[in-house]
Measured scan of single mutants.
Amino acid sequence: AREMGVIAAMRDGFGFIKCVDRDVRMFFHFSEILDGNQLHIADEVEFTVVPDMLSAQRNHAIRIKKLPKGTV
């Protein structure tokens, strides 16, 4: 199932999404941004959540798609 959120932080090559449906900041890597979009803080996005290979306690966001403002 796809989830929605807002870009909360951007770093060098990765960032975090503030999720709508869960009280966490979800890690993502820039390589998972679809359509070659440039994302910025406060952009609204949808994404798929998958378990982190390195840590069973953590998840991360993949297949991130920018949404029109006002969607979330």
Rank of each mutant, 00 (worst) to 15 (best):
A1E: 11
A1R: 14
E3W: 05
E3S: 10
E3L: 06
E3T: 08
E3P: 04
E3K: 08
E3I: 10
M4F: 14
M4Y: 11
M4S: 08
M4T: 10
G5V: 08
V6A: 11
I7T: 03
I7P: 01
I7S: 04
I7Q: 00
A8R: 03
A8C: 13
R11F: 13
R11W: 08
D12K: 08
D12P: 04
D12F: 00
D12A: 08
D12S: 08
D12W: 03
D12I: 07
D12H: 06
D12E: 14
D12T: 08
D12L: 04
G13D: 14
G13C: 03
G13P: 02
G13V: 03
G13M: 10
G13E: 03
F14L: 04
F14C: 10
G15N: 00
G15W: 01
G15V: 02
F16Y: 11
K18L: 05
K18S: 09
K18H: 11
K18M: 07
K18A: 10
C19F: 07
V20I: 08
D21C: 04
D21M: 09
R22Y: 06
R22D: 07
R22W: 04
R22F: 02
D23Y: 05
D23L: 05
V24C: 15
V24L: 13
V24P: 11
V24E: 15
V24N: 13
R25S: 13
M26L: 14
M26K: 04
M26E: 03
M26W: 08
M26I: 13
F27H: 11
F27E: 09
F28A: 02
H29F: 08
H29G: 03
H29E: 15
F30V: 09
F30A: 09
F30T: 11
S31P: 07
E32P: 00
E32V: 00
E32M: 05
I33P: 00
I33E: 01
I33F: 04
I33T: 04
I33R: 01
I33C: 07
L34E: 14
L34A: 12
D35R: 05
D35V: 02
D35K: 08
D35G: 11
D35I: 05
G36P: 08
G36D: 09
N37M: 10
N37F: 07
N37I: 15
Q38E: 14
Q38Y: 05
Q38R: 10
Q38G: 07
L39S: 02
L39R: 00
L39I: 07
H40F: 09
H40W: 06
I41T: 10
I41R: 02
I41S: 01
A42W: 10
A42G: 14
A42E: 15
D43R: 00
D43K: 00
D43F: 05
D43Y: 00
E44Q: 05
E44D: 06
E44H: 03
E44R: 02
V45D: 03
V45W: 01
V45Q: 01
V45K: 01
V45A: 01
V45H: 03
E46Q: 05
E46M: 03
E46H: 02
E46F: 00
E46W: 02
F47M: 00
F47N: 02
F47D: 00
T48A: 06
T48V: 06
T48C: 10
T48L: 04
T48M: 15
T48D: 15
V49G: 04
V49L: 07
V49P: 11
V50H: 04
V50N: 09
V50T: 06
P51K: 15
P51R: 13
P51S: 15
D52L: 07
D52G: 11
D52E: 09
M53S: 12
M53G: 15
L54Q: 15
L54C: 15
L54N: 12
L54E: 14
S55A: 08
S55R: 14
A56E: 14
A56C: 08
Q57F: 10
Q57D: 14
Q57P: 09
Q57M: 07
Q57A: 12
R58W: 10
R58L: 09
R58G: 13
N59F: 13
N59M: 11
H60A: 10
H60W: 03
H60I: 13
H60K: 15
A61N: 07
A61Y: 12
I62Q: 04
I62F: 04
I62Y: 06
I62L: 02
R63E: 09
R63F: 00
R63K: 14
R63A: 11
R63N: 14
I64Q: 00
I64G: 00
I64M: 01
I64W: 00
K65S: 05
K65H: 06
K65G: 03
K65R: 11
K65A: 08
K66A: 04
K66G: 04
K66Y: 00
K66T: 00
K66L: 07
L67R: 03
L67T: 05
L67I: 05
L67C: 07
L67A: 02
L67W: 02
P68G: 05
P68R: 10
P68S: 06
P68H: 06
K69M: 10
K69L: 06
K69C: 13
K69V: 08
K69Q: 10
K69A: 13
G70V: 03
G70N: 03
G70P: 01
G70S: 04
T71N: 05
T71S: 15
T71F: 03
T71Y: 04
V72Y: 05
V72M: 07
V72K: 05
